[in-house]
Design a protein around this nucleic acid. Sequence first.
DNA 1: GCGATAAAGGACCATTTTAGTACTATTTAG
DNA 2: CTAAATAGTACTAAAATGGTCCTTTATCGC
Lengths: 159, 159
Amino acid sequence: MVDSGVLRISRLTDYGTVLLAHLAASQGAVCSAADVATATGIAAPTVSKLLKSLGRSGLVISTRGANGGYRLARDPHEISAADVIDALEGPVSITECSGSDRQCEHEGTCSVGGAWQRINVAIRHALEDVSLIDLLRNNRPVPQPRIGGLPINVEIKSR
Amino acid sequence: MVDSGVLRISRLTDYGTVLLAHLAASQGAVCSAADVATATGIAAPTVSKLLKSLGRSGLVISTRGANGGYRLARDPHEISAADVIDALEGPVSITECSGSDRQCEHEGTCSVGGAWQRINVAIRHALEDVSLIDLLRNNRPVPQPRIGGLPINVEIKSR
DNA sequence: GCGATAAAGGACCATTTTAGTACTATTTAG
DNA sequence: CTAAATAGTACTAAAATGGTCCTTTATCGC
């Protein structure tokens, strides 16, 4: 449990961004799933599965048959992190009851709710603000700030 | 799968905010875990487990023995959503490899990374911006729910 | 001191989610 | 026609999650 905590995206979604980044780097050329797998080092069946999903969501365009493959459906500037997450995991919502309109089972006694929406919106904006290009470009050796031995990203308040 | 997707906090963390909200509403009075369980409708062992965690993280203060119980460690204005999440789930990080210092297994081929940090920071800020009081006050439709006689929307000093 | 109360801390189990695999059908270039 | 490649579906293994139980320790009231 040393790993990251909440608010994580699933590993598959993370892979998804890697795949899309590869397609973006390929400048519109059609790449087969196998090619992408080789290039990214992600297992072929997994790549295939992900690209299928991304196709269904309209982020990539597929061409079937011999010499077929995948390419981005639109300019990588126009694909946001939110798009990728939506495609692979469904709509973003931080709590179960704040996202959908169905009833929370503790509705009567639950005194928490409204402010999560605000948080949701903020997160949404952050995700929409980052494009595939950003994800590609901001790639750097990472001078990750470190606090003590802790791999924390953001400053943590004193305890 | 109708439910919320990624970026959700776990149910336990959600419960945690409910528990803390109840303690906030109790204005510093000591509440036993059993009381809180009754008041919130959350299963007693679960409440107990959560309050233990919150105690270890310094968000609540425990008193053992007869007439013991829990109370908030500090003013509810000073407890943020980020605090609660940190306490119950560890540090927030959206991807596995952006949060920890361990190597991503696809390091050589992975072209994604940097921009997630920016997203992390944005999310972090959103979470730090919302206090327990906000979570209480922005309470929705449910008009003045009362819990075993206790009104839950206690007005505490506004800011 | 004694007994009741209540938290602390672990160990443990059931269920759900997630990740990954396999197999079959369909489409298309040559 | 055949080979290459995606589409779709079903299945399995592994991990995280949620929840329960039990034993120990501390405190209060008598």
